[in-house]
Design a protein around this nucleic acid. Sequence first.
DNA 1: GTCACGAACATACCACCGGTATGGCGGTGG
DNA 2: CCACCGCCATACCGGTGGTATGTTCGTGAC
Lengths: 200, 200
Amino acid sequence: MRSRRDDYSESTRAALVKSAVRLFTERGYAGTSLDEIAKRARVTKGALYHHFSGKQAVFEAAFDEVESDVKGRLEKILSGPEAPWDRALNGLREFIASCLDPAYQRLALQEAPVVMGWARWREAEDRYSFGLIKQALQDLIDAGEVLAVPVEVTSRLLFGALCSAATEIAHSTDQRKVGDEIEDVVVRLLNQVRRPAAGA
Amino acid sequence: MRSRRDDYSESTRAALVKSAVRLFTERGYAGTSLDEIAKRARVTKGALYHHFSGKQAVFEAAFDEVESDVKGRLEKILSGPEAPWDRALNGLREFIASCLDPAYQRLALQEAPVVMGWARWREAEDRYSFGLIKQALQDLIDAGEVLAVPVEVTSRLLFGALCSAATEIAHSTDQRKVGDEIEDVVVRLLNQVRRPAAGA
DNA sequence: GTCACGAACATACCACCGGTATGGCGGTGG
DNA sequence: CCACCGCCATACCGGTGGTATGTTCGTGAC
């Protein structure tokens, strides 16, 4: 039976993660102290170290929090009822939109590879956004919508391009304009590799 | 007149930068202490703080060191006597090769945006590799080799894709195979946007 | 030659932060 | 009702970035 204490414990842990996401997004990993994270969650460092093994673990929890959110929205779109090509396109737009979230931008895309180490980050990304992008590309190929390409490296190229572009959008003064430009270029490129038989 | 002391000073500064490049590459920015950097250069932290205003400044000096190297090699190729299309292709190969250098990989591409802050990093990149890529793309458009595209965002997409891909290559067990795959995909994409009149 | 001066360092010290050890409070199961 | 233990607070330590101060020695003026 789930006890009252379990509720309390989970609540403080969630508060710590929420606090960590906020502060890591605002000041970065190196710029935020554990005392600040704990203080914002109205506890002390002792509580933090009870729930997490260290600063890295706190970061990874914040990372999972942010990634899960994006993954959820992407999954919903990619498993929709539309045609494969349209699902991919909508997924693309959704991913770009997600990248505009400062938390996802800084935590998951910028700092995570440095803080967690590239290998661990890549492993984690395989279970989140990158994994979905790879899957979407594979689906397009299986459906005969696009020419056969090496899925792993192509999705890696696509992922890198989108992350870089999204950062550009996020920091530009006219987000709408830059966003449209990028979507335009990507769609044009995708249309180039689209199989003639499937196209208009 | 250049004094003996100036020689000494420049020598120790260079030794500090070299030491910083080495250690930042091996252990990352957060993982290396200023004492270590100074020790490897056979001086103390006092000397380091005489030449640099702080840890960030040391990192930026190391960053400039690595970037200048890559920029030099790229400039040589891009300003060669070959046709624009071939120069671009050779530049592409050279850039991918440069990305395999652990120092450039980790320092300039991975940690720099986090350590220097994205805005400052972007500003610096405009004067280094990214600036050259953007210029190369502009040249291709001016020469009528490829379709007109928004240069800024397209080169950003390309740059992001290449960096991401290069990291993938660097960490893969069979670098040759993955490298060839990536070059193949990129060249195929580029050929898609190549103007029919200019192509074969 | 020598002497004062300042650049080029070395040394000593401080504040802060990640991490650990220990103490105490209160919900929970028996 | 009580002993236990999870949950959390407090106290403390080592290391690190940064600063302030001391020391050496090449340099240029006389």
